[in-house]
């Protein structure tokens, strides 16, 4: 629709003509990638299913469909770690992982860590060391540290540094993050 001021809008309700046309005309934008599928997965211990384009990033599905906004967008290329979740226990960049790839898996997000109001040891360690400034990167850091503490309870300082350097904290609170992860690893 174009009104007299030149503003063009196509609100949902106003798309009837276009939709009608599409029944008869091939749509150049319609390809297989737009087709929706039902994807079954476990999120934080609960069975869930998403009817969605399987190419959508897991990050978007968690945030937009399941309202789990603790997992953050930081870069969209798997470089900063803000979007890290555990897929079957493995730290995974949800911004570059499609939801189709994780069908049938167990996904754990920051919201699923605390049990019965009790913080996970890694969450407590981040609190104890005040390993947060703006805090936006913290959920991603914590998820990687959870896997590290579980998989490598004897991780050395160098191993911790190597692992956690896959993340970015732009506030550069690295001194406290290192202390927190060291505590978490030692306690596990």
């Amino acid at each position: 629709m174009i009104d007299r001021t030149g503003v063009t809008t196509a609100p949902t309700a106003g798309n009837a003509v276009a939709r009608l046309l599409r029944r008869f005309l091939p749509d150049p934008t319609e390809d297989e990638s737009v087709a929706e599928e039902t994807i079954e997965l476990q999120i934080n211990g609960q069975r869930q299913s998403a009817d969605t384009d399987p190419d959508r990033p897991l990050l978007d599905v968690l945030r937009e469909d399941f309202h789990l906004t603790g997992t953050k967008f930081g870069c969209g290329e798997g470089e900063c770690g803000a979007c890290t979740v555990l897929v079957d226990g493995v730290p995974t960049r949800s911004c570059i992982t499609s939801v189709g790839e994780v069908g049938g898996t167990e996904v754990q997000t920051i919201e699923g860590l605390a049990q019965a109001g009790q913080l996970h040891g890694v969450q407590q360690a981040f609190l104890d060391h005040q390993a947060m400034q703006c805090g936006y990167c913290v959920p991603g850091h914590i998820m990687t540290a959870v896997a590290l503490a579980k998989e490598r309870p004897n991780a050395s300082r160098d191993e911790i540094v190597a692992e956690m350097s896959q993340h970015i904290c732009r506030c550069c609170n690295y001194e406290n993050i290192l202390a927190a992860v060291q505590q978490a690893v030692q306690q596990s």
């Binding site: 063009t8 196509a10 798309n15 276009a18 939709r19 990033p57």
Partner: peptide
């Protein structure tokens, strides 16, 4: 091409062109 997509709002206003939809994807 965007206006033909279901559930998408397309706006052109001066230099501004943007879309809104139920998902960011």
């Amino acid at each position: 091409p965007a206006q033909q997509l279901d559930d998408v709002v397309v706006v052109r206003d001066g230099d501004f062109i943007g879309c809104a939809a139920p998902t960011s994807w």
